[in-house]
């Protein structure tokens, strides 16, 4: 019925009743993680205003000494110091992971929407879209990256305007690869969502004199994209993790740096646990962010805004 307040989603109700310690800890951990990342990046960009570039924000020696003084934690002091020593490298790698993911996802989305629309509403273009999607989803992403990097040697053709933005132009090749591949996956998610928009919505749009494209733009997409958010979040999460494949074409992102350090120090377990935790933090951030987006754009009767 008509009411001033929109019905709360299940998630909102759960969140309201759960102001628990766990939630606070999660928020605190998130703040610490992103605080550390951002301060590390800013420090590097400004040429080491806080600590010399390449040095951890907190001296490893101090961490080791502190832990050594605490009974029970003393055994972990040297490991902790080792991890602290790693942090500048991890922060650098994480920056590239974040940028590659964000840019590829955004540009991929811009490509995916027309691909999905073509697939659902097109005639000839539906076949083009289907071919593209199946080709990109049906072949290994790593193989696609190898073709772009080794096969086509695209790193040497990066346009002037983009060249030099990153320390190495190969980063652009990785972004291109993830964009093209991600667009195919995103298009599939969006296609499914568009198909769930009722036929009557299109009929009604056409009946007031909107053209087919206008109906898609003003009526179908605003609904379909809302339906797509939960499954689209999957693609976001996957992309964060498979951006690590960029390491195989020498992009010094998080996984690549971790692997390098591990092969120099042989401390594989410790390094990849820390790296894994970093990916986990990125993934949790992404899914929390998308939950927020979903709640923000929720409309009664559509997707998660529905009471059913």
């Amino acid at each position: 019925m008509a009411s001033a307040t929109r019905p709360a989603t299940v998630r909102e109700r759960v969140a309201d009743s759960d102001r628990s310690v766990g939630r606070l800890l999660l928020v605190a951990a998130g703040a610490l993680f992103w605080g550390w990342l951002v301060v590390s990046w800013v420090n590097r960009w400004l040429g080491g205003v806080l600590v010399p570039v390449g040095q951890p924000l907190v001296p490893a020696g101090a961490v080791e000494a502190t832990l050594a003084a605490i009974p029970g934690l003393a055994a972990y002091a040297s490991d902790a110091a080792f991890v602290v020593e790693l942090t500048p490298e991890l922060a650098r790698g994480t920056w590239l992971t974040v940028v590659i993911t964000a840019v590829s996802l955004a540009v991929g989305f811009v490509l995916a929407v027309p691909l999905a629309v073509a697939r659902v509403y097109g005639r000839f273009s539906a076949w083009v879209s289907l071919g593209y999607t199946e080709l990109l989803r049906g072949t290994p992403l790593l193989a696609q990256l190898f073709v772009l990097y080794y096969g086509l040697n695209l790193a040497s053709y990066v346009p002037g305007a983009l060249s030099g933005v990153f320390a190495r132009d190969v980063v652009w090749v990785a972004i291109l690869g993830f964009t093209l591949n991600g667009a195919a996956y995103q298009a599939e998610y969006i296609r499914g969502a568009l198909e769930s928009v009722e036929e009557g919505q299109i009929t009604a749009g056409r009946a007031i004199g909107l053209s087919k494209l206008e109906t898609i733009y003003y009526v179908v997409l605003p609904q379909g994209l809302r339906y797509a958010i939960p499954s689209w979040t999957n693609e976001f999460v996957y992309l964060i993790k498979y951006s690590s494949l960029a390491g195989f074409i020498t992009v010094p992102e998080l996984y690549y740096r971790a692997d390098q350090i591990a092969s120099e120090t042989f401390r594989y377990t410790l390094i990849f646990v820390v790296t894994g935790v970093t990916y986990l933090a990125l993934v949790l951030t992404a899914s929390k962010l998308m939950e927020r987006v979903e709640d923000r754009v929720a409309i009664p009767g559509i997707g998660s805004g529905s009471e059913e």
């Binding site: 919505q201 009604a204 749009g205 009946a207 004199g209 909107l210 053209s211 009526v219 609904q223 559509i302």
Partner: peptide, 20 residues
């Protein structure tokens, strides 16, 4: 046809209101 539909209003059995 878009011009035609501008001048001819239609009301549906299932309402077909734009849900968003």
């Amino acid at each position: 046809v878009d011009e035609l539909r501008r001048e001819v209003g239609m009301v549906f059995q299932g309402f077909n209101l734009f849900a968003h």
